[in-house]
Amino acid sequence: MSPDKKMMVSMYETMNRIRLFETKLQEFFAAGRIPGFVHLYLGEEAVATGACAGLTNQDKITSTHRGHGHLLAKGGDLKLMMAEIFGRKDGYCKGKGGSMHIADFDLGILGANGIVGGGGPLALGAALANKYEKTDAVVICFFGDGASNQGTTQESLNMASAWKLPLVFVNENNGYGISCPQCKSMAVTDIADRAAAYDMPGVVVDGNDVLAVHEAVSEAVKRARKGEGPSLVECKTYRWRGHFEGDACTYRCDEELKEWMAKDPIPRFEEKLVESGVLKKKDLKEIKARIEKEVGEAVEFAEQSPLPEASALMDDVYA
């Protein structure tokens, strides 16, 4: 199912939103203006964008420690995200969560997650709730190659399949679990092969091709909505930055990075957009400029937002 023109434009905007948001974070982190640590999504924009395009606010996602891209693709508010990452009072979580714990339940974002493999069981619960309430809403569980080895992920794949839950497992295989390359952490080349063990469809796609991701995930979503159960879509991609900002990346070589940067998902999509006449070159520029402005406004919002007061410390421990 190929997306219509409107969706393609929206996908292009989302990819740029993620790219520019993350680039700004990289800059601010280096300048020491962001507390804690951040895991950037640069280079992987096509995965979140392709997977989330076409979802509604009733559809939910569970995300990961590298979650900014997922949240933005699901409609997350730039200003509230930026303020949260800055640890400010007006952030999504009032400064209580930070980069790894942003959620927006109204948009169906059940939260980024600081625990590798933590999201799978929660996604099961959200998908079960859809089934229980007899809605046709679906859940996407984003997880990395590292998380694919966690017991929680295997438990989730198994139960989702046994119960035919409306769940799509979107694996972002960026080749490394922190510093450990995939070849050292698992014997399989394709994580999608594991789907067979749970009797669900498993496909591999080029994770730097937003349309390919969208097509595969849409197919899985369609299947889930019809009550036919879960699927596993493995998106092969690469993170341009280290596991976290400040990671010296001594475990991989520059050539590899260059090779992947040449497969940058944004220019690849631009080519298709221009070729198919969806957008002209000047439209691309205009969109980028507009989003750059949006990101600038988000930074301004974050900077102007006050830091939380210590008196808020004990709020929201209990309902």
């Binding site: 569970t62 059940l110 309430e133």
Partner: peptide, 17 residues
């Protein structure tokens, strides 16, 4: 699979059940 049990409960509770 106890993680799946507890996590399913948590995810379903966060989703309104």
């Amino acid at each position: 699979t106890e993680s799946a049990i507890v996590g399913t409960a948590a995810g379903a509770a966060a989703s309104g059940l």
